[in-house]
């Protein structure tokens, strides 16, 4: 039973690390941002899991419902989702500019160009 109660969290950890891996291992600047996206979304899953109460209902008050899931993590993650999309859009805008300036979005090619000039 003990192991099962952490199963959810462990899967979330795996998800986070998959995203994190894409960020640091890939050389394509767009793919890095995709990885960042996955990493952040996985953290959202951690928070939302923490707010779940078994047998609880969605936190919209209704007559006859006693047990609700925790609304606070939901609020935090709503904010965090916005932060995530904001970061992604700024990152992508930079990628577009980098492509215009270097003609490539591969990290290795960019480093090479900077080294030669």
């Amino acid at each position: 039973m003990d192991v099962f109660s952490y199963f959810n969290y462990w899967v979330v950890v795996v998800l986070m690390m998959l995203g994190f891996f894409i960020v640091i291992a890939r050389g394509n600047l767009v793919k890095k941002l995709i990885g960042l996206n996955i990493f952040q979304t996985s953290v959202f899953i951690l928070y939302i899991s923490a707010g779940k109460v078994m047998g609880g209902a969605a936190p919209i008050l209704a007559d006859g419902v006693e047990l609700y899931s925790n609304p606070l993590p939901h609020v935090l993650i709503l904010t965090a989702i916005v932060v995530g999309i904001a970061t992604t859009s700024v990152g992508l805008a930079l990628v577009v500019r980098i492509h215009a300036a270097y003609g490539t979005v591969e990290e290795a090619d960019i480093l090479e160009q900077d080294a030669t000039c």
Binding site: F44, I45, I48, S49, G51, K52, V53, G56, A57, A58, P59, I60, Y68, S69, P73, H74, I77, L78, I81
Partner: peptide
Amino acid sequence: FVTMDAVDV
């Protein structure tokens, strides 16, 4: 998130 009752999220 829906299964976790986080409908807004």
